[in-house]
Computed example of a mutant assay.
Amino acid sequence: MMNALVLQSDFGLEDGAVSAMKGVAHSVSKVIPIYDNTHDIPPFDIWSASYRLWQTVTYWPKGTVFVSVVDPGVGSNRKSIVAKTVSGQYIVTPDNGTLTHIAKFIGMESIREIDEETNRLPKSGASHTFHGRDIYAFTGARIAAGVISFEEVGQMLPIKQFVSLPYDEPVIQEGTVRGSIDILDVRYGNLWTNVPRELFLQLHVDYGDKIEVMIEYESRQVYHNVITFGRSFAAIHIGEPLIYVNSLDNMAIAINQGSFAKAHNIGTGASWRMTLRKS
C-alpha cells in the first residue's frame, strides 16, 4: 500500500537540495505522494524541527512517513533512526533530539536504527554530508512505498534510547503560571508558549479578563504589561495585544494584525521565560 511521504528540513528552497530529496523518493516509486511540511526551519534548529513535527504529525493518517532533516551532526557517529508513533505514523530522522516533542506529547511505539548498508541510495557511499538525500529520503520513500517493512529498517532500539532535548515544564504557584516561549507563529510574530490551556484556567480566568504578562530573557525583564484574554483577535482593536488559546491548545500572545515578536524583540527557547497572573 502506498502511503504519503512528508518532508521537512532546514534546507530552504533557494537551491536544489529539496528537489534532490524528492527525486530520490520518485526513483523509489514514480507515483509516491510527496508533500512538504516545511523547509524553513531555522538552520541547525533541532528544537524547531521537533516542535513542527508535533504540530503536524497527528493530523496525518496512520502509515504516513515523515522525513525530518535538521542535522548539524551529519557525518558524525549520531544514529539514523525511524520511530513509529503510537498513532501509527513513521518519522525518519537523525537521532539528535528531533523526537523530543513526539515522545512527550504523542508517544512512540518503537524505534529502529537504520541499517545504512542496505538502506542507502546506491552509489552514494562516498558522500557524508547529504544524508537527507542518501539515507533519510531514500529510506522514508521505501517505507512509504511498501518496498521495505518497518522491521527491515534495521535493529530495534530500546524505546527510551533516543536523544531528547531539555524541556522545562510549566508550573502554577501562588496564583502565577510560569512557562517558556517555545516557538513563534512565524509569519505573524505570535508567541507560542508551553503553557497548556487547562493550567492557565486554574487562574480562574474568563474571556475578557485582564492578564498581567511578564517576559524575561536570562532573568532580565523585557516586557511587562496587562493584556486581554480573548477568544479570538476580534476581541480587541487592531494594534492591541491579546493572550489567546492557539491551535495546539496552549496559550499564545499576539498583537492584532502586528508582530508581537518584532515589536518587543522577543525570541524563543529555554532562556525566554514568562509569567502570567490574573490582574
Rank of each mutant, 00 (worst) to 15 (best):
T56I: 10
L121D: 12
H128L: 13
L121C: 13
I159S: 14
T129M: 07
W272N: 07
E216F: 14
L121V: 08
S127W: 14
I106L: 02
I159D: 06
D249T: 08
P61K: 10
Y59F: 11
I227W: 01
P158I: 05
E109C: 04
A144W: 10
V222R: 11
Q221C: 14
V205I: 06
M108L: 15
Q8G: 09
I34T: 02
D134Y: 07
A126Q: 11
D95T: 12
V65S: 02
Y167K: 02
Y90W: 09
H131W: 07
A252C: 12
G175T: 06
S80T: 09
L7M: 10
F233I: 07
I41M: 08
N250V: 15
N190G: 11
D15S: 06
A261T: 05
I266H: 00
R187S: 13
L157N: 01
K160F: 12
V213N: 03
P61V: 03
H128A: 11
S76M: 01
G16P: 04
I238Q: 14
E14Y: 11
T100Q: 12
A261R: 04
V24R: 00
K79Q: 02
V67K: 00
I215E: 06
A270Y: 06
Y207C: 00
R277F: 00
V18W: 00
L203F: 06
T98S: 15
S29T: 10
S48F: 12
G269Y: 00
W272I: 12
N265G: 03
A137L: 05
S149D: 08
V82Y: 02
L99K: 09
L5G: 07
I111C: 01
H237I: 14
H131D: 13
A261P: 00
D249K: 13
E216Y: 15
T193L: 06
F150K: 01
T93H: 06
Y136I: 06
Y188P: 03
E117F: 09
D115V: 10
R197D: 11
S164I: 10
N37T: 04
I46D: 03
G132I: 10
T64I: 07
I102N: 00
M156I: 11
I172N: 11
Y35N: 08
V147Y: 03
D45T: 14
V205F: 03
I114H: 05
T56Y: 06
F66M: 07
R120I: 06
V67I: 12
H237D: 14
T193S: 08
A234I: 09
G23W: 05
K30Y: 12
D10P: 01
V57M: 14
L7P: 01
N265M: 09
E216K: 13
W60Q: 10
M21W: 05
V163Y: 03
T275C: 04
S232Y: 04
I255K: 00
R120W: 09
G175V: 01
T98I: 04
K30A: 15
F233E: 08
F130Y: 09
G75W: 01
N190P: 12
T176C: 12
V171W: 01
T118C: 10
S149C: 05
M156H: 13
K62Y: 09
E151Y: 01
D168W: 02
T228E: 13
Y90A: 01
Q221M: 13
S48D: 08
S180R: 15
Y207P: 15
K22D: 07
N119F: 02
